[in-house]
Design a binder for these strands. Sequence first.
DNA 1: ATTCTGACA
DNA 2: TGTCAGTA
Length: 173
Amino acid sequence: MAHSSSRAKEKFHKIAATERRRATPEPEDDWDPIMAIGVAASMTGLSVSALRKYESEGLLTYHRTPTGRRLLCRADIRRIKTIQHLINEEGLNIEGIRRLLALLPCWDLTHCSQDTRRECLATKHSHQPCWMVRKTKCAKAGFNCNECDVYRYGTYCIGTMKSLVHGTDDDTP
DNA sequence: ATTCTGACA
DNA sequence: TGTCAGTA
């Protein structure tokens, strides 16, 4: 019994480690803006304009250089791949994905006060993610959406939705 | 912002 | 023929 139980234990720890990695917040460099959009295009097999379109459709928001050029991070690459999967395998369209993201409870994740929440425009838009809404309280406070848990949680969230729907692991943050 | 294309139903 | 992701 000692043998099989230590084996089982070993296996358990392996699974636990995997789960812990899954639940752990992403390493910082996953969010560091490191690559130009053309690099990301070749990494994902999409065109530069498609990547820009994803942004204009509200699926992501890229970092910018001081001169306005887009910079992408590793998490963006995973996010793009997840979007591709949702579109090509799961039958969602761009608007559907956007509207799922628009349902993220940003007021909870940012610990908004009831007052702020009530008057904030982001709360009212159920069809647009908060990072698409101008003149939110966050935006006025100079908040950077790329560093916000709401936006980052969106990545985790759509990855999780995919695994819930399809039972896959490969894009789990 | 806008228009065009290819795939698909 | 209309829609939509992706293109330029």
